Each structure stands twice: as structure tokens, then as C-alpha cells.
Amino acid sequence: MDKKDILSRVDHTLLSQTATWEEIRRILDDGIKYGCASACIPACYVKQAAEYVDGKLPICTVIGFPNGYHTTATKIFETRDAVANGADEIDMVINIGFLKDKRYDEIEQEIRKIHEACSGKTLKVIIETCLLTDEEKIKMCEIVTNAGAEFIKTSTGFSTVGATFSDVELMRQYVGTNVKVKAAGGISSFADAEKFIELGADRLGTSRLVKIMKNA
């Protein structure tokens, strides 16, 4: 698999608390230059970014990020606001405490409501695999499939561990055929990226691959 094909699956990401518009603009420019799948940026920059790229690059943002314990109403508002501002893709974080409490119906209903608020835009559901048991990961594959989201995503990149090969393999095994897998967090080489894709990841969340290309 060549690097261009791998980059076409990358959500070029900058979500740090200190991110400035100048840094976001560079992410957008690089995302366009290297043919990335999207730029994943903080919600406060979505409107400015959408106007800046003018359709040349899909804009992705995060909802309930990074901890997931916002109320459902808050997440729905965030989603509607992001879409109104020009977001093409939404990456939401589940309520992990609810999962631990086995409040499965509430999690599924939240995903359904947020998916509806996306108004046809792509929804990716972040389950933060490093905090879950395998049983919980499998349950979330079932819930995300039933809720109708387009993607299940491993990680925020803000917890203890990012994506792992074993998690992507497990998710691909248990998620429905209509749901794609996004690996995010800690993807630091093209070799690792290719391995994630081979194991079933359709999308990769990272900034390092573009940096490798620029440094080369």
C-alpha cells in the first residue's frame, strides 16, 4: 500500500487545548496538500475552517470530548451547532460510566439522537478502548451497530493508551458490516498505519503521518 493511499484514510488531527488558528490553518493546508480524508479540529474553529477550505477538505470535529460525560442534551446541541457551522463529520465520545453501569439502552439512545442531529453527516462513536474490558468493547460494537452510526472509533488520544492492533481486530470482528472502524491515538509510522488498515481500520486519526511526509 503506498503512502498516498494511506494518507487518503487519515483524519489529520489537532485537538490540543492550546491550538491556535495559525496551527489549525497549517493542519488544513497540509490536509489539502496530502489528500487526507478530513481535518479533525476543535469545534470553535469549525466555521472559520469550513470557510477557509471552501470545500477542498472535509471538516471533522469532536463532541462530548474527551471525557464523554456531558449530558445527552449538551452533546446534541454541540452536534447541531457544529453541523450548522459546516462540520462534515462528527466524532462523539460515549458516556463510559454509563457503560460500566450497563446502561446500554441509554447509550444507544444517545447515539441515535446524536446521529439524527448530524442531519446526514458522518458520525463516529469513540468508545475509549483503553478503559474498557473486551466484553465492554464487544457490547459497544453491538450498540454502535444497532444505533446506526457510520463508524466506531477506538480512542480520543487523551487517555492512557491510543489505538492497538488487537482492539481494531476485535472491533472489526464484532461490529456490523455497515459500520466502519477508525483507529486513533499513537499511530506514529506508515508501517503501523498499514497494519491497522490490514486489520480492518477504514480511517486513521493522527497528525504524525503528515509530519513524516513534511520532514522527508
Rank of each mutant, 00 (worst) to 15 (best):
A39M: 08
S16Q: 14
K211W: 14
I27R: 11
A193S: 14
G186S: 07
L15Q: 12
K153S: 04
V161W: 07
I152S: 01
Q17L: 12
F190I: 12
R208T: 15
G205T: 04
E198Q: 15
V83I: 15
T133Y: 13
M213V: 15
K137G: 07
A193N: 13
M92L: 11
V62H: 01
T61V: 06
F65R: 03
A117M: 10
T160G: 05
E89Y: 05
H12Q: 04
D91R: 04
L131E: 03
Y69C: 10
F165T: 12
G157V: 05
I96H: 09
I187K: 11
G185A: 05
M1W: 07
I143K: 00
L57M: 06
A39W: 15
R26K: 15
F98A: 12
C60Q: 03
P58D: 04
V83A: 10
S207D: 02
F190P: 12
D202Q: 12
L132W: 10
T74I: 11
D88S: 11
A117E: 05
F158K: 12
Y104N: 07
T13C: 11
Y104D: 13
T13A: 08
E136I: 00
V93C: 15
A117H: 04
S38C: 13
I59W: 07
I143E: 04
G176K: 01
D2H: 05
N215T: 14
N178H: 11
K180M: 06
Y52T: 13
G64R: 04
D11Q: 01
Y45D: 15
I212S: 15
G68I: 06
A19F: 07
I32E: 11
T20E: 14
Y45T: 12
A183H: 07
D134C: 10
R25V: 09
I126F: 03
M171I: 10
V210P: 11
L170G: 07
V161N: 09
A73W: 08
L204D: 05
R112I: 10
Y45C: 13
Q109W: 05
D105H: 10
C36R: 05
H12C: 02
T133Q: 07
D202L: 00
L209T: 05
T129W: 02
K3P: 00
A87G: 10
K56A: 13
G55C: 07
E108H: 02
C118E: 02
V144H: 03
Q48C: 12
A163T: 02
V125N: 02
F196N: 06
A184R: 01
K75I: 06
K100Y: 05
G64A: 09
M171P: 06
V161K: 15
S38M: 03
T154Q: 06
L204Y: 06
H70A: 10
L28P: 13
V83Q: 08
G64F: 02
D105V: 11
I41W: 09
L204C: 08
A82I: 07
L199K: 11
K100I: 08
I187D: 06
H12W: 13
R80D: 10
N85V: 00
E89G: 06
G176T: 01
K153R: 01
